[in-house]
């Protein structure tokens, strides 16, 4: 049984049919790289997996938890699915440590000291153990994104969704974030990432999914697909990136 099971998923934004029947199975421990041009539906697909976007038809199951279209109470699901955003979205009035602790304290009702210990462990994992008391505006973009990763990991999700997490970073800061993701992948965390970092997708990804006009146009082993794209659309996309 796949950890994430997506079946015949459709979504419209008004008259715009953005997801046109997506089928995708993701196994525990897999690293999935979602690639494609902007507007191809990859971010929308990612956001349906934790219910930030509703969908119109089809089904999504995460670890046996079924998401119904237009459901509003998604909290059980969201405890299993973590998310990291392009714009970091740290809470600006809380320190790095408090950002990481907030949900474990108030959602999981973890005792204060346990939450502090866990937050410290998560910040250590992303290499920011000395930034517990720093506020977001005192951190670089790369550091903020690593705090955001620590914040998502503290909830111990089964799947981590990464939505273009290096796209808002200065080029010299991209690698420190990718290094963290690489470590997570090596630890066996299930990752679904929308990314424009093709080299990284190729190196770390277990499976590449190429989205084109709201459909999965091509998918499979990254090495094979990059070396030998089967469709002209993927070939042209790879060509335009390099």
């Amino acid at each position: 049984m796949a950890l994430v099971h997506i079946d015949a998923l459709h979504k419209h934004f008004g008259s715009n049919h953005v997801l046109k029947g997506i089928d995708l199975d993701i196994e525990e421990g897999q690293v999935i790289a979602l690639i494609g041009r902007s507007g191809s539906g990859k971010s929308t697909l990612l956001r349906t997996i934790n219910g930030l976007e509703s969908f119109d038809e089809g089904r999504i199951e995460v670890d046996g938890e079924r998401i119904h279209p237009h459901e509003t109470d998604l909290r059980a699901l969201r405890q299993k699915v973590g998310m990291v955003f392009q714009q970091f979205n740290l809470f600006p009035h809380l320190s790095a440590g408090q950002n990481v602790m907030l949900a474990t304290r108030i959602v999981k009702k973890m005792p204060e000291q346990d939450a502090v210990d866990l937050a410290k462990a998560m910040l250590l994992k992303v290499g920011l153990q000395d930034k517990f008391d720093a506020y977001p505006d005192q951190l670089s973009g790369g550091q903020q994104q690593r705090v955001a990763i620590a914040r998502a990991l503290a909830m111990q999700p089964r799947v981590l969704l990464c939505d273009e997490i290096t796209s808002a970073l200065d080029p010299e800061l991209v690698n420190e974030v990718l290094a963290v993701v690489r470590n997570l992948a090596a630890e066996g965390i299930t990752l679904i990432m929308v990314t424009h970092e093709m080299r990284f997708a190729r190196e770390v990804g277990d499976k590449l999914v190429f989205m084109y006009q709201g459909r999965i146009h091509e998918s499979g082993d990254p090495q094979t697909l990059f070396a030998n794209p089967q469709t002209p659309e993927l070939a042209s996309f790879i060509g335009s990136i390099n």
């Binding site: 714009q87 809470f91 959602v107 998502a152 909830m155 969704l161």
Partner: peptide, 11 residues
């Protein structure tokens, strides 16, 4: 985005 981040933390 901050509200979405909080939502995705199951708050």
């Amino acid at each position: 985005g901050q509200i979405e981040a909080a939502e995705s933390l199951a708050m």
